[in-house]
């Protein structure tokens, strides 16, 4: 390690040369330290607690409501999808909780973490110290992005696990009826729940790249978070306007609810694939934009 530093240090440059061989272990260490930094923050923990509380709230509300009316599945007017099935199968709380948190809570949490990633460090004056280490800006940015992605997965898992726990506690578990009306075993249903959590986490990757790009634009962490979340809300509103339906398919939240297609029998892939393609496009465009900005930026703080 120390030897590597000796060799690399004199060649430090605003743009790290592409010739540098990426040390896998080094990158892993960098990523780990980034992830630990993210997870140790109080605001991150607070966000995760809020996310875990959502399924608890939904579960208790559904339990109290149906308890008063003496069972019966019908009557769930509007609201998030899958709400009506929760009383019969606790596993559906996982789907309902993800459907409820995906439009707002999850992307908001990701926006906070992604927006803070670079701008927060710049704002508190720690970014230059990070760059002193011979990691290179590209690799630092990559480590930041991977840690944000890891946060996406962790946040989704927190919602899913909390929902599963509450669902198992308050409601019966058992065979799952897919939304196509066919029955699958509980184990299969659990597998699909895991797949859905994965799809939801991937759905957030485009938003994470966008937040990271915004984060490289400013030195104020708050400004980056506010812009990212403001953009999320704007895009969600744009997606609701029927006159603008032509641009709808290119907005990153457009296919978010496609995760429900995993619950069809057989799985309906069209929308899911479109979702993945769209997220990949956002990651490519805003990831490279963040890279272009971050590697050429004058770090003054």
């Amino acid at each position: 390690m120390s030897r590597a530093e000796v060799v690399e240090a004199p060649r430090r440059d605003p743009e790290p040369g592409p010739a540098r061989r990426p040390g896998v272990l080094w990158s892993l260490g960098l990523f780990r330290s980034e992830l630990v930094t993210v997870l140790r923050r109080w605001r991150t923990l607070a966000l995760l607690v809020v996310l875990a509380a959502v399924p608890i709230l939904i579960g208790i509300a559904v339990k109290v409501d149906t308890g008063g009316r003496g069972g019966g599945g019908g009557g769930g007017e509007g609201g998030p999808a899958f709400l009506t099935q929760i009383t019969n199968n606790g596993l559906f709380l996982v789907f309902a909780a993800l459907a409820a948190t995906l439009p707002v809570f999850l992307p908001m949490a990701v926006g906070v973490v992604a927006g803070d990633a670079v701008a927060g460090e710049a704002g508190s004056g720690t970014l230059r110290y990070l760059l002193v280490a011979p990691a290179g800006r590209t690799r630092l940015l990559l480590a930041k992005y991977v840690s944000v992605l890891a946060f996406c997965a962790i946040a989704t898992l927190v919602v899913a696990v909390s929902a599963l726990a509450v669902g198992a506690l308050l409601f019966p578990l058992g065979e799952v009826t897919t939304i196509s009306g066919t029955q699958i075993s509980f184990a299969d249903g659990l597998l699909r729940a895991v797949a859905i959590a994965g799809v939801v986490a991937v759905s957030l990757s485009g938003m994470a790249a966008l937040g990271l790009f915004i984060s490289t634009l400013t030195n104020s962490g708050i400004a980056a978070m506010a812009t990212t979340i403001g953009l999320l809300i704007t895009v969600q509103i744009l997606g609701q306007i029927p006159q603008l339906h032509a641009i709808g398919p290119y907005l990153f939240p457009h296919y978010w609810l496609s995760f429900a297609d995993v619950l069809r029998q057989p799985v309906y892939w069209d929308q899911l694939v479109k979702n993945f393609e769209l997220q990949a496009l956002y990651v490519a465009v805003f990831g490279s934009a963040a890279w272009a900005r971050f590697t050429t930026k004058d770090i003054t703080a």
Binding site: G74, A81, A99, S180, G181, L257, A260, R264
Partner: peptide, 28 residues
């Protein structure tokens, strides 16, 4: 025949003598 809706599906199933319709959105 199934009509795919957002996070829900309406299925019409004919199997022998039975005709079933199932709306997963309202669980009816």
């Amino acid at each position: 025949v199934s009509i795919l809706e957002d996070a829900a599906e309406y299925s019409l199933i004919h199997n022998g003598k039975d005709v079933w319709a199932y709306d997963s959105g309202s669980n009816q």
